[in-house]
Design a binder for these strands. Sequence first.
DNA 1: GTAGGTGCAAATACTTTGCATGACA
DNA 2: TGTCATGCAAAGTATTTGCACCTAC
Lengths: 142, 142
Amino acid sequence: MNNLSNLFKEKNLKLTPQRYAIYNYLLGTKSHPSAEMIYEALKPHYPTMSLATVYKTLNTLIELGLVQQLNVGEDNFRFDAKAEPHPHIVCLECGKVDDIDELELNNINQIAQKYTNYKISSSKVYFYGLCPECQLKEEGDR
Amino acid sequence: MNNLSNLFKEKNLKLTPQRYAIYNYLLGTKSHPSAEMIYEALKPHYPTMSLATVYKTLNTLIELGLVQQLNVGEDNFRFDAKAEPHPHIVCLECGKVDDIDELELNNINQIAQKYTNYKISSSKVYFYGLCPECQLKEEGDR
DNA sequence: GTAGGTGCAAATACTTTGCATGACA
DNA sequence: TGTCATGCAAAGTATTTGCACCTAC
């Protein structure tokens, strides 16, 4: 965690308890929470923390490259402490978002580069479907 | 365009000039406009049309499967009259959004299916980079 | 001690909704 | 003619901003 401290120092940023808590929470969850969800999760431990601080901190962490922002098609953003690009999958029923770590799409940018005059620098891939739990519920409905 | 008329009739929907204009505008552009952009583009021809109608119509067209909604990472949605899935590319400089029609990703869902317990039904792929025009501008800056 | 951060409230931006009027079928 | 759509204004939701006070360094 010393890396974090140094990284903040380099940029003349302060490592406040709020920032630490938000980043740590993101590191410790696989749920790809929204700002609101992070706020609600931390409120018991940091009762004075405001939603505005969550948003500001998330933007700071994104600028530092520690966090990425996801757009699964909802009306809000979700956040992921894994900054390396990797595909995500969204449950159309319950809204859950998971990683698909095993699927390697490293070469997709190079493949796509052949078909466009844009200079590609990154990409985002989202799959949509039913999570195992919601599949079971569907079965139960029959 | 008779298909459209029939499709509307089936669903007990009325094919108003506004709906016709919005769908036609989307069919005729490759710019993947936002609701606001559609509104501004049609205002000269339909001065009484309201932004609310644009939103309502877009949601209707989406339900009919005639239009798809894009989330390129901005704070708004963009719309595309090509309902079949196809990858998009976003210019990080000017915000332009283009299709990459030639890149076929039909099999990507099946490939990803091997690595997840979700039942995959669709996917969205976004590339990010610099469009040709903005690449030239960058060159000019040096 | 000071630059930078927090937290509140207000502002902004996008989208949706309620409702009276209007128009397609 | 009746049902559905439009258009206005107001409401709702997500996010950002301004500013006085506070705190990490």
